[in-house]
Structures are given as C-alpha cells and as structure tokens.
C-alpha cells in the first residue's frame, strides 16, 4: 500500500498577537512544528504500513525550512519526503494549496491512500484535504476517527459527526482527513532520528510539477485577506461581592431582573 501524508509546518503556538504599531502578526521567537493534526495522519500511515506493508511518503508545501518538518516525520517512521518549494507558491490560499499539493501527488503517481490532518492550527480551515481529493477526482471522507478495515482497493472507516459517527466504505485510491481521536502518535525512535538526519528530501519547484502559473500562489488564489485584527473585547462585567450566601442571592436577583431565569 502506497500512502502519501500531506503535512504543514506551522508556528508552535496559536498564541499570536497583533502588533498595534504595524497591524501584523507578531511571531518572534516562535519555533516551527508539524501541524499537530498532521502528526495523527503520519502515525496512522505508519500503522497501516506496519500492518499490511507498503511505503509512506511525506508531502509538504512551504519554504525550504519546512524540510525539518518532513525529517521529523521520517524520524517517526515515514520512508521518504518531498517538499514543494518555490517563491511562486507564496500567498496561496486553500484553492491554490490544494491544486499545488495535488500536482505533487500526480507527479508521485503511485498511491493508494492520501492522509491529511483535519485542519492546520494556524488557518483552521479544514479545506485543503477535500480540495486535493476533488482536484484528483478521488473519493474522500473527512474527520475520520477510526479505520475499521483497509485492504487492496478498499477502506472502511468511521467519520466523526456532531452527534456520533458514520461508518463509510469507499474504493481506493482515496483520501481521508483524520481527527485526534484516531490514535496516539509515537515519539521518534533513536534509529528513526539517525535515519532522518541522513535522509535526502526531494525538492520540487513549480516547473517540476508542470503547474499552471494561473493556478498557483497569490495569482491562483481566489480569496484575499484584506484585514487582520484582534477579536473585540466584551464590555467589562460586574463583580458580585459579599459573603457566599449574599453573593448567591445578589446574583440570582440580578438574573431574575434580566429575565434570564
């Protein structure tokens, strides 16, 4: 089974602030990590490989330093990795990102299953996985919390829904996006880290992919960010003071006045 896992390198925290001076994100001193949801995707791919054999290829799009994230995945047990890196990819929204990654997958050509994390913790869109599937004309299931059965040409899995789950089967090749309930990711082994250190990460540019210039980067992105800002603060509240019994009485009285209860 040939499995491709799409990952993204993201800032190691979502605790970012907007500089009041420049109205842009302050990301100083924040280290980069593999998007946490993608770690579950890597783990699941390695588990499938351990169970039924095959190969796990990591695919990412990003600046040259994103190679580090791919190496981390190799340290966990992935076989090899490819980085799509080109200044022409800069400014991609989810449409252009889906297109670019799907072009990378087309170039890899041999695949049965593509696994993505459900969303990245910086953009929080959850759109790239389904976008890749559509671009490749593949069936997909988003929010997978369990793979029940996987064999040549077939997968049966559980999609997490608000009120429970759905059991779904589909033919392979296919794409799934996974949620954190799916597994408990392993830590890289010493042997894995040694292997990762030596691993050569293939880098492909827009030209290598034969990507249509009108479909990549800022030019290929239908959406544009026009403003970023800090969320508005709620107006200040009222502290209820006094002894405990008194506080309870005052609070309930205030709620009765507001006809909340």
């Amino acid at each position: 089974m040939n499995i491709i896992v799409c990952i993204k390198q993201v800032p190691g925290t979502t605790d970012v602030k907007i500089s009041e001076k420049t109205n842009t994100l302050v990301r100083e001193g924040v280290e980069s990590i593999i998007n946490p949801f993608d770690v579950y995707a890597i783990e699941e791919a390695i588990r499938i490989k351990e169970k039924i054999g095959g190969k796990v290829t990591i695919l990412s799009m990003g600046p040259p330093q994103a190679k580090e994230a791919i190496k981390e995945a190799i340290a966990m047990g992935a076989d090899d990795g490819i980085l799509l890196s080109d200044r022409a990819f800069a400014g991609s929204d989810t449409w252009a990102t889906s297109y670019t990654l799907s072009m990378g997958i087309k170039k890899i050509s041999a695949y049965d299953l593509i696994i993505c994390g459900k969303q990245a913790i910086d953009g929080d869109t959850a759109q790239v996985g389904p976008g890749i599937a559509e671009s490749l004309g593949l069936p997909f299931v988003a929010y997978v919390r369990k793979i029940e059965e996987i064999k040549e040409g077939y997968i049966r899995c559980e999609r997490m829904m608000e009120e429970g789950y759905e059991a779904i089967e589909m033919s392979l090749p296919a794409l799934i996006t996974v949620v954190k309930e799916i597994n408990e990711p392993r830590l890289p082994s010493l042997k894995g880290m040694m292997r990762a250190k030596k691993a050569e990460i293939t880098a492909w540019t827009a030209q290598d992919l034969n990507a249509e210039p009108a479909n990549i980067g800022l030019t290929g992105s239908p959406t544009q960010v026009v403003k970023i800002f800090s969320p508005p603060a709620r107006p200040g509240g009222e502290m209820i003071l006094g002894e405990i019994g008194e506080q309870a009485e005052k609070l309930v009285t205030r709620l009765r006045e507001l006809k909340i209860v």
Partner: peptide, 23 residues
C-alpha cells in the same frame, strides 16, 4: 460550518474554481 458543510463546501469550491472562506 458543520462537519457536513465543511466537507461539502471545499469540494464544490474547488470544482467551480472559486474562493471559499471557512467558519
């Protein structure tokens, strides 16, 4: 932006070749 909506919308947007903003 439910689990159904967030699965369906990117498929539609990608095929039609248009922008989609999440959530």
């Amino acid at each position: 932006a439910t689990s159904i909506g967030r699965s369906l919308a990117p498929k539609i947007a990608f095929r039609i070749r248009t922008g989609l903003t999440a959530d």
